[in-house]
């Protein structure tokens, strides 16, 4: 079971993800913006970070960069409501474990997480 951080500026995304992933036995922390999440990352390592791409202030790409610097082994899953950013998606593929356009099927996310933590 993994320690998972979720960052999305819409509360519903974090709430639903937390509830669904806690059911699987994961430990989940949610954040509504990147700044406090990055602060938390400095204190504690997570196995996986699920982050929204487009957020006010610090965006998902910056989160990705910071995670890479702090914990190269931590996996990142990116989600976004703006799925037509083909180029960005391609660029991200190399860096992120997975990428999902919203709405994200929770089953798919769970499976991706299993693969990320080496259970799938």
């Amino acid at each position: 079971m993994a320690r998972i951080m979720i960052i999305d500026d819409e509360k519903i995304v974090g709430d639903m993800a937390r509830m669904s992933l806690e059911q699987e036995g994961h430990e989940v922390e949610t954040f509504l913006s990147a700044a406090p999440a990055l602060e938390r990352l400095k204190q504690r390592q997570f196995n996986l970070v699920v982050t929204d791409l487009k957020m006010k202030g610090i965006d998902g790409l910056e989160v990705l960069k910071t995670v890479r610097e702090l914990y190269p082994q931590t996996k990142v899953i990116m989600i976004t409501a703006f799925a037509n950013l083909d180029v960005a998606i391609e660029a991200l593929r190399a860096e992120v474990h997975d990428f999902f356009p919203k709405p994200v099927k929770i089953k798919d996310l769970k499976e991706s997480i299993k693969r990320a933590i080496g259970e799938g």
Binding site: E10, A81, K102, P103, K105, I106
Partner: peptide, 13 residues
């Protein structure tokens, strides 16, 4: 379906 609990969605959707 999307709002039925099986998907993560946001207000944009």
């Amino acid at each position: 379906e999307k709002l039925g609990g099986g998907y993560l969605f946001d207000i944009v959707y």
